[in-house]
Design a protein around this nucleic acid. Sequence first.
DNA 1: ATATGTGCAAATCCTTTGCATAGAA
DNA 2: TTCTATGCAAAGGATTTGCACATAT
Lengths: 142, 142
Amino acid sequence: VLDPPECRPEDAVASRLRCCGIHPTAQRLQVAALLLARPQHLTAEQILAALRSSGARVSKATVYNTLNLLAERGVVRQLVVDGDRAWFDSNVDAHFHFQDVATGQLSDLPMGSVDFSRLPDPPAGMEYAGIDLVIRLRRRPT
Amino acid sequence: VLDPPECRPEDAVASRLRCCGIHPTAQRLQVAALLLARPQHLTAEQILAALRSSGARVSKATVYNTLNLLAERGVVRQLVVDGDRAWFDSNVDAHFHFQDVATGQLSDLPMGSVDFSRLPDPPAGMEYAGIDLVIRLRRRPT
DNA sequence: ATATGTGCAAATCCTTTGCATAGAA
DNA sequence: TTCTATGCAAAGGATTTGCACATAT
């Protein structure tokens, strides 16, 4: 992945937003910086709570707006693994997930731990837009 | 898959429910018969609408209750492919899905069209509870 | 000025729940 | 009876939306 030339390397997050044509406002920077801080999966609610407890002044609407915008531009990835809520993943590279069915907890599959020896051709006139693989886990009975 | 011995082959749907310990009431039979009629993916809302337009007397709550019950007992399978709504799949055998990202439409992957040459070991103390694979599709640009 | 963000609260949408009634054993 | 299922309407929770205000260029 190459950085576009117009990308000046000042603040990493800010420039990453600018690169995608996202105006880096205070709230957007806070949301993005929090989520992108490390590989993780967070819900909108978790992000809102974390920002507020760290003293940030952000509204719920802005958190949602921002996360949707970031996901749309490919800065983060939105995951749908259960019907309850959306998870936002700071890792946009191709990777898959475990989910503990009891707790809902998500974790990344180890890199390279999945390999397809066969995948279907897309139906006529269609092309792949992505592959979502979720391995559901339960506690092993003793 | 063997039919339990106490399963008399009268009405197929009714006995399938009884086999799972589900009391086959009128509404449950209607919901199950509609969904199980053929391999398909339907939402609760679609099922409710279809039943009502065919003259059935069912409430939304009962449709949800019934679908949850059927899913719990393994008669149907609940799919979570987008955050908007749950889909219920009449096919409970292991299989995967295409989803058209534009329309949300689901379809089954051709049987045997996916093969894993490598899958991760479950984390310590955990075991596989299932694998959900969704291949997102978009219209191919011309 | 003029475009764009932001916040708040209300609105939506899907799904669940509480409770009184209807039905089955 | 006694237990279970149903219907209705209200509740719930996540997400979106409308609109006035604040902000940045």
